[in-house]
Nucleic acid binder design. Sequence first.
DNA 1: AATCCGGGGTT
DNA 2: AACCCAGGATT
Length: 366
Amino acid sequence: MENSTSNKQHFSNTLINWYHQNKRNLPWRNTTSAYHIWLSEIILQQTRVSQGLPYYQQFTEKFPTIQDLANAQEDEVMRTWQGLGYYSRARNLHKCAKIITENFLGKFPESYKELLKLPGIGPYTGAAIASFAFKEPVPAIDGNAYRVLSRVFGLDHDLSESKTFRKFFEASGQLIPDNNPDDYNQAIMEFGAMHCTPKNPNCQECPFISSCFAYENNQQHLLPVKTKKTKVSKRHMNYLVFRHADTFFMKQRSGKDIWQGLYDFYCLESENNPDINEIEDKLLFSLLNSGAIVEHESTVYKHVLSHRQLFIRFYVIDVQSSANVQMLEQSDLIAFEKETLEEIPKPIIIDKFLKIYNGEQNLLIL
DNA sequence: AATCCGGGGTT
DNA sequence: AACCCAGGATT
């Protein structure tokens, strides 16, 4: 008859053994640098390893130390982040680098509790850094940990409820070994990512096949429990792409909307994506009356975010006169040369449009 | 407690 | 089309 203590040890030992035999060789696992561990964890929030890996390499190359990151221009940090999404991560990354550099002598605080006070570091990331860099036995609860723990132990708390985090945090806190917290946290995440996957988990070769609640009760597809689905709504965005020779007129997004800090074009939103002559806009009206020419209307692009379906249409306007250029600059639009455009951070759909548009121009020349 | 915030890969 | 990814901040 096993007591509960040995069952707990069995779980963490089995998990860690599996990890040592199956782990991927990832760059942030070969360092004890809190800077590099922190960087990887911020990048990997809500992001698959395969998507985050090239960004991690770019960041470590461009910003070898946290001082390099702190001293960088915000735009350069955002440009390096371009395409990863959830851009508040990049803004908080920069903000945090400055705090560490200016207030902490370049060293991260070494406890979970203190790490939580830094911008962009929440319960998961705080636990990851505390355990990986400083060996503090605090459980890191990410999507993988929720899935593995709920299936193996039959924990059916609803992930949609906020109190559920504490249930899993305490459950995993009972299991994490004091002498090996970093391997335990790495292991439960790697096991969830590679073996105990959301769909088609590899139960036949699973080290927990004889003790897993979900397998025994055939509930792999029911665990973890998540009742509330994110609601997706539609938005229609119409971009007036003002062009004058090789310069484009851009605007830096601010406020609480999507893509904060990134640059896009003059944007009009409506209930649809109208033809250009259906658009009523003072600036457009004035420009057209001063000789501007509509040179291209794009098809409607569908760009999907996790909580929005964006329907986006681009209207390229050749503004023609320098009088019109002045009018645009008075409307808070900033002129960028085609080459300089590459250096500013843009939403991926804007980047894609510019590549296609400029590519078409090149094709016409050939 | 509910909502917002990206982009991409899998199924 | 639905799901979800090494989640956190704001309302």
